[in-house]
């Protein structure tokens, strides 16, 4: 179980002539990923989802708030003492082309972490190659075909599978997948997603899925929770199906409305929400962060910041003064 409370992160952007500017990437985010669970963070670029993923994977520090891994708070620990905890959380990069060392064969790429693992667990050297083969089979590729090859000799889909196999060398508890299929051909995306789903079911690895593509999050995390991030704040959270089919925050609704409709298979939702203007991160921080773009804003929204509150209970929460369900997602056209 991994939880976070009040995670904040502010970047200083090196500025122009007017001096530097602060970018508040995360403004106090709470989350919980249960053991073996699937949680998705969705939002547009700049919403803080990637920063949050990197903080959870231990690749970046946060300014305030606490991350607790299996009951142990991370803040009091020295960086060295934290390392074994974060090693159990592995990040899968977006770009399978740059994530692998081009001068190493797949065998060499897998061997290095496995050697370490063998030493840690007191296994014999013969275990290493056997495990490399097992892991590649586990991610659905033929070890005999890929072990001797270099990354450039493999397709994007295969490389991404190798990246996943490498993440599995340390027997992780959680995989953090940040837009991990966006660079892969459409017909092969689903097979990578299916693999991640399958690993969760078979190995009990929990999954943190970070994406701008809500339909993909629905495929991978249909049983889990979905967090909608906007400008560093969670604006809606709940069971994936519930947030997608009964969204109450206008930003979630705008995001869902923006998903292209497959005309011929679907009809557009009746109440699609379109923001009144484009995102401008320089908008004042006063009041609701979405107020300037929200078609339903009132005076209160411009003055006061709404905090997460339950719709009926805490299983579906929103940060909006005027939550209202709207039919925004496409409806099946075929009877």
């Amino acid at each position: 179980m991994i939880t976070g409370t009040g995670i904040t992160k502010t970047y200083k952007q090196r500025g122009d002539v007017l001096g530097s500017r602060e970018v508040r990437a995360l403004r106090g985010v709470d989350f919980a990923v249960p053991r073996g669970g699937a949680v998705s963070f969705i939002g547009e670029s700049g919403c803080g989802k990637t920063t949050l993923g990197r903080i959870i994977a231990g690749l970046e520090t946060h300014d305030s708030g606490e991350i607790v891994i299996d009951g142990t708070p991370m803040t009091p620990l020295s960086p060295r003492r934290r390392r074994p905890y974060f090693r159990r959380i592995q990040l899968i990069h977006q770009d399978p082309y740059s994530a692998l060392n081009p001068t190493r064969t797949i065998h060499q790429t897998l061997r290095a972490p496995l050697e370490l693992r063998a030493r840690q667990t007191g296994r014999p050297g013969s275990w290493i190659d056997q495990r490399a083969g097992e892991l590649l089979s586990l991610v659905g590729i033929d070890p005999g075909y890929v072990l001797g090859r270099y990354p450039h000799q493999l397709s994007g889909g295969m490389r991404q599978r190798v990246v996943i196999a490498r993440a599995l060398t340390v027997d992780p508890e959680m995989l953090v997948a940040d837009e991990s299929v966006s660079m892969i051909d459409v017909s092969m995306r689903l097979s990578i997603l299916a693999l991640l789903k399958d690993l969760r079911e078979r190995l009990g690895v929990s999954l943190l899925f970070i994406t701008h593509d809500i339909a993909t999050a629905r495929y991978i995390g249909d049983a889990g929770e979905l967090y909608v991030l906007y400008r560093g704040q969670v604006v809606e959270r709940g069971l994936t199906e519930s947030v997608i089919h009964e969204p109450v925050h206008p930003y979630t609704q705008a995001l869902l409305s923006a998903i292209p409709v497959l005309h011929g298979l679907e009809r557009p939702g009746r109440e699609r929400v379109v923001p009144t203007e484009a995102l401008d991160e320089r908008h004042a921080d006063e009041g609701c962060l979405f107020a300037r773009r929200c078609p339903f804003r009132t005076e209160r929204c411009e003055k006061e910041l709404p905090v997460l509150a339950g719709c009926q209970d805490s299983s579906h929460e929103h940060a909006c003064f005027h939550p209202q369900r709207r039919a925004v997602i496409p409806v099946e056209a075929v009877a």
Binding site: M188, R189, L190, E332
Partner: peptide, 23 residues
């Protein structure tokens, strides 16, 4: 195959299925 491989917002998500092989 391509249409079946698109995860969608409505309908049964488990019906989405990958297209085997690669382009």
């Amino acid at each position: 195959g391509l249409i079946r491989a698109i995860p969608r917002l409505s309908g049964d998500i488990t019906k989405a299925s990958a297209l085997p092989g690669r382009p």
